[in-house]
């Protein structure tokens, strides 16, 4: 904005750079220590520079103990499918709540939204019991269904918030042209909602990817186990710990969520709710 001179811009850049540095410090720690050997880490100080790069050894250690790639692929599958389905279902519901003629809009909204309110830890036992009765325990479908269901409320919230800011006149004129409700949903609402959909995808994919709770409780085999639950198996018995390998695993496991952010970052620049009511 024009009120700011070059000087104040410089000050702001310097301040931001300082905070950036602070924000990055922990990563510096991770990078320096993630490439050390186990003994090098244990016997030295964390600020000592690594004597060599032991990534391969550490990766070998990880792979000896867990099936890293299998967990990685599982989580990719869960993240992609559950998030897509959740966005689809949530957008349909959000469309109905904001643009169609239904009674009790707030009721329906709150009903679905309430799914995000309860502490998820308390879902473990009921869902576990349900799953062991219908044979979904330790299955990919089971985890997919849970993740989809739990992603819906937040997506509904974001999408409805956007949908109700879409001007009513657009809908009316499309109706005059004889467009069906579903056509309006596809060609107006979904088309305009690229940015919020990208946001939902980013947030929910990250959430599914990082979930530990449901992965731990609802899976027991490497075939169904998501990445974070696999990683938790790296924690050794009391007092033993291969910190460098764990750090390396943490970095490797965080690549997809970061990558998705980089990809979606651009699409945030297309239309987001801007009018306030």
């Amino acid at each position: 904005m024009k009120t700011y001179t070059e000087n104040s811009r410089k000050t702001i850049t310097i301040l931001l750079s300082f905070f950036c540095f602070l924000w990055f410090l922990p990563f510096l720690y991770v990078v320096i220590n993630g490439v050390k050997t186990r003994k090098e880490y244990n016997l030295g100080e964390f600020w000592d520079l690594p004597k060599g790069i032991s990534i391969l050894e550490n990766y070998e250690y990880i792979n000896d103990r867990i099936d890293f790639m299998m967990g990685f692929m599982n989580s990719l599958l869960y993240g992609a499918i559950a998030t897509t389905l959740a966005i689809l279902f949530a957008s349909l519901a959000a469309y109905a709540i904001s643009a169609l003629k239904i009674k009790g809009k707030m009721f329906w909204f709150m009903l679905i939204y309430s799914g995000t309110i309860f502490p998820f830890q308390m879902y473990i036992i009921p869902i576990f019991r349900m799953y062991s009765n219908v044979d979904l325990y330790d299955s990919k479908i089971g985890l997919l269904a849970v993740y989809t269901a739990l992603c819906i409320p937040f997506c509904l919230f974001v999408l409805r918030n956007y949908f109700y800011s879409i001007p009513k006149e657009l809908v009316e004129s499309a109706k005059m042209d004889g467009a069906s409700d579903f056509k309006i949903y596809v060609s107006i609402f979904m088309k305009m909602a690229k940015a919020p959909i990208a946001a939902c995808f980013l947030f929910q994919f990250t959430w599914v990817w990082n979930d530990l709770l449901f992965g731990l409780t609802l899976s027991k085999s490497a075939e169904a186990r998501p990445i974070m639950s696999s990683l938790s198996l790296l924690n050794g018995a009391s007092g033993t710990n291969d910190v460098p390998s764990a750090l390396l695993a943490a970095i490797l496991a965080s690549i997809p969520t970061f990558f998705i952010f980089l990809v979606l970052n651009k699409s945030f620049n297309y239309g987001f709710p801007t009018t306030s009511k």
């Binding site: 689809l88 279902f89 949530a90 349909l92 519901a93 469309y95 109905a96 709540i97 169609l100 003629k101 239904i102 329906w108 009903l111 679905i112 309430s114 799914g115 309860f118 308390m122 879902y123 036992i125 009921p126 869902i127 349900m130 269904a145 849970v146 989809t148 269901a149 739990l150 819906i152 409320p153 509904l156 409700d181 949903y185």
Partner: peptide, 27 residues
Amino acid sequence: EKITPYLYLVPAVILVVIFCIYSDFFS
């Protein structure tokens, strides 16, 4: 015509009821 709009809610509501509302009720 009156009912169709509600169909848009069905998938989301079913999933949320099965997993969330059921668990809330259980708790």
